[in-house]
């Protein structure tokens, strides 16, 4: 019943400026995929397209279960989610923020309450449960975003620069969260970062996005790339 993602020949441009030229990759395994690339290389765009938040100009985003193509409907969309760099905090309590994704799936009462509390404990925000979410620090806000996303048990979790704008301490907390999710092996995590050390710490698979194209490679190949300071030159 594992969900798999296949990106084929993804092309995207904004006002005639090509952002993605030809991205093809199969995300078949659970674990953490890290997409690396410079600012403006199109990492966010690729993630938003893969998460079905945007459509490509050309190419296809296909999700499969046991080789069977899934229809892109609300059922499929509800199995994948993305945490954006600006997570979009709802002007209400931390609790209600996390409950949103569950409530719209019809969860109510004790089940809902337990799930929200579990997830908030998991990201270390249980003591802020009643606080208005807009009053959280940026690190806590990012954790709230992740809590909101994992509350719904996504098969695919996209994290767009999850630690870009936060301090070291919170970065560590978030990396630990990602590592725990990785150990659970329940979901496929696809994240972007421009921190190569972070990519090494977290990633099972590392991909490079350069000049609108996606370059896959195994970890060993990546290490060679890193050691030859390939990244600095692209």
């Amino acid at each position: 019943m594992r969900l798999q993602l296949r990106l084929s020949n993804i092309r995207k441009s904004y006002r005639n400026v090509s952002v993605l030229i030809d991205c093809t990759y199969n995300f078949d395994n659970t674990g953490v995929y890290v997409i690396m690339g410079k600012n403006g290389s199109g990492k966010s765009t690729l993630l938003r397209i893969a998460a079905l938040l945007e459509s490509p100009n050309y190419g296809s985003v296909e999700y499969y279960i046991n080789g069977v193509l899934q229809r892109t409907d609300i059922q499929l969309k509800r199995r994948i989610t993305i945490v954006l760099p600006k997570i979009g905090v709802f002007n209400t309590s931390v609790y209600t923020n996390v409950a949103f994704g569950l409530k719209i799936r019809g969860l109510r009462g004790k089940e809902l309450d337990e799930r929200v509390r579990d997830v908030l404990s998991f990201v270390g925000l249980h003591h802020k449960i009643k606080q208005n979410a807009l009053t959280l620090s940026s690190g806590e806000t990012q954790r709230l975003g992740i809590a909101r996303a994992i509350a719904i048990n996504p098969a695919f979790l996209f994290l767009d620069e999850p630690t870009s704008f936060i301090d070291e301490e919170n970065t560590k907390v978030i990396e630990d969260i990602i590592l725990q999710l990785k150990d659970d092996k329940k979901s496929t995590i696809i994240m972007t970062t421009h921190d190569k050390n972070q990519a090494e710490r977290l990633g099972d698979f590392i991909l490079l996005l350069n000049k609108g194209m996606l370059f896959p490679g195994d970890k060993q190949a990546q290490n060679t790339l890193f050691s030859s300071s390939y990244l600095e030159n692209i």
Binding site: A51, L53, I74, K77, R78, T81, I82, V83, L84, K86, I87, G88, F90, N91, T92, F100, G101, I104, R105, R148, A149, I152
Partner: peptide
């Protein structure tokens, strides 16, 4: 209302109607 709110709702699996209700609440 920041468009990010709408995107967050969609990303969490809200239907268009559910997204609209959230935006009204915001």
């Amino acid at each position: 209302i920041d468009p990010v709110i709408k995107q967050a709702a969609e990303a969490l699996g809200a239907t268009r109607f559910q997204t609209a209700l959230l935006v009204i609440r915001e």
